[in-house]
Write a protein that binds this DNA or RNA. Structure first.
Length: 493
RNA sequence: CGGGAAUUAGUUCAGUUUGGUAGAACGCUAGUUUUGGGAACUAGAGGCCGUAGGUUCAAGUCCUGCAUUCCCGACCA
């Protein structure tokens, strides 16, 4: 299987084919019988659980709690906030009936026309509306604020075209929804969660991201300001990896959520929402993988080490089992997760390929030959390098190696991004450069019209206005009008 | 919703030109030999050829409708 992957490379034209093969062959996910929906398989879900656990810890550390809100939302809720309905109406699945009955021709079941719902329900594409409808009951006074809730849930957006992990009709995500007494506090919250996302992406996923602000065209439907983290994939396309929105008082006004201030005045509540989804797994796969399969950062690998025994006969196996069990114990004591695969129905060569395809960071080979010399063979997935190490103290060696791998994967992604990021000063140059992929930093006059024109002509969008970075004024590369600063362009997923 | 292509074994596909006994590879099952980079041999199991009609002595193959899936666009985290 790994051989088939080798026919393509992560940076070629046929990237989507490569990506799909990789996802399927690494046993992460597959398309389901339902259009646009995906089955996340156990190995893929194990990675998602790692992501969930880590993010959830980080949310708790910043004072958030989890809650759960309904899957179905009354249709009328969606129309309360004008921009919001505009943004989501086109992709909502709608529940119209609550009962089936046997068909009169006697074949199968049909929708019972008697069971039409008085008010149709939509399957949540996001939960702002149902949550703000609920918050109305929770908030009377400034003493009830802030509310810092997060929800782990599934949502559904009836996308025209789907791709495993990157854009599926149903996807898993977390959505934080907070309510605040002041504008400053809400803005600070939105910024804080952006930082949490950025830290998670870089420290755990080993994916470097640019923190920034979305232009008006790309802003979340209903938000005053959308902050985002943008990542660069190996084929030169950008991927929005997470967003944090400052919602102003838009939803409080739409759902009439007012509170009494310290000064005994009525005011609308200030809001944020922020989310990341199973799309992060797409980012993980596309940012690091090579032609031998996945490359997982140790911090998110379902297991960090796999031990493969090589033996002839039961005597050797017994001896190797003993050594392996001892090593497993030592590694676990050091907090390293490990799988010992002594299944005898697969050959070692098969296992080597399999675990490379699955992206396990470190492989330890225990063979009779090595053990006689007191050595073990270690292979690191990121560099595909084999070394021989003394059995004594190998657990400590592996623990340090894992740190090194995590750092190396991040550095590699960072170097790649640097190599495809550049400044451009004219539109002609831009049109040439955008074909090569990567991030392009250029001046823009700040108008939606110019942004739209660039998108039409080059398929490139403004990924973000970076929070850090060059703030020297200049002139727009298209119109020549004044530009406050450079912004980041790319073609994106 | 536009433009292409596809639908046959668990999977990937051949077979359609010229209608005539349903095929291959991989996978699966059993046995033997194997085990330091995806093992070999032998013997098996497995198909209403997407669906509904039509043409014909005869349809996987020709004709018509329908459904579904994939790719390329528009939409989007």
């Amino acid at each position: 299987m790994a051989k088939e992957l080798k026919e393509l490379t992560p940076r070629e034209e046929n990237y989507s084919q490569w990506y799909n093969d990789l996802v399927v062959k690494a046993d992460l996910a597959e398309n389901s019988a339902v259009r646009g929906c995906m089955v996340i398989k156990p190995y893929g879900y194990a990675i998602w659980e790692k992501i969930q656990r880590q993010l959830d810890d980080m949310f708790k550390e910043t004072g958030h709690v989890n809650a759960y809100f309904p899957l179905l939302i009354p249709k009328s809720f969606l129309s309360r906030e004008a921009d919001h309905v505009e943004g989501f109406a086109k992709e909502c699945a709608v529940v119209t009936h609550y009962r089936l009955k046997n068909s009169e021709e006697g074949k199968g079941v049909v929708v019972d026309p008697e069971a039409r719902l008085e008010e149709e329900l939509i399957i949540r594409p996001t939960s702002e509306t149902i949550i703000w409808n609920t918050y109305k009951n929770w908030i009377q006074s400034y003493r009830d604020l802030p509310i810092l809730c997060n929800q782990w849930a599934n949502v559904m957006r009836w996308e025209m075209r789907t791709r495993l992990f990157l854009r599926t009709a149903e996807f898993l995500w977390q959505e934080g929804h907070t309510a605040h007494a002041t504008e400053e506090e809400a803005l600070e919250e939105a910024r804080k969660m952006l930082d949490v996302y950025a830290e998670f992406a870089e420290k755990y996923m080993a994916v470097p991201v640019v923190k920034g602000i979305k232009s008006a065209n790309e802003r979340f439907a209903g938000a005053v300001e959308t902050f985002c983290i943008e990542a660069m994939m190996q084929d030169g396309k950008a991927l929005q990896a997470g967003t944090s929105h400052f919602l102003g008082q838009n939803f409080a006004k739409a759902f009439d959520v007012q509170f009494v201030t310290k000064e005994n005045k009525l005011d609308y509540v200030w809001a944020t929402s922020w989310g990341v989804s199973t799309r992060l797994m797409g980012a993980l796969i596309m940012a690091h993988s090579d032609n031998n399969g996945l490359v997982l950062p140790p911090a998110l690998a379902p297991f960090q080490v796999v031990i493969v025994p090589i033996y002839k006969g039961d005597d050797q196996l017994a001896m190797i089992n003993e050594k392996a069990d001892a090593l497993v114990k030592e590694l676990k004591a050091l907090g390293v997760s490990v799988k010992y695969d002594n299944a005898d129905n697969k050959k070692p060569g098969w296992k080597f390929s399999e675990y490379e395809l699955k992206g396990v960071p470190v492989r330890v080979v225990l063979g009779a030959r090595d053990l006689e010399n007191g050595m073990v063979e270690i292979m690191r997935r990121d560099k595909l390098e084999k070394t021989s190490v003394a059995y004594e103290g190998v657990a400590q060696y592996i623990k340090e190696l894992l740190n090194d791998i995590q750092a190396n994967i991040f550095q590699k992604a960072l170097d790649y991004r640097a190599s495809v990021t550049r400044e451009v000063n004219s539109y002609d140059e831009f049109k040439v450069e955008i074909e090569k992929g990567g991030f392009i930093s250029a001046h823009w006059d700040g108008t939606p019209e110019t942004e739209e024109l660039i998108k039409q002509e080059t398929k490139a969008t403004i990924r973000c206005i970076p929070l850090d970075g060059d703030t020297t004024p200049g002139v727009c590369m298209v119109t020549g009008r004044p530009s406050a600063r450079r912004v980041l362009f790319a073609r994106a997923y």
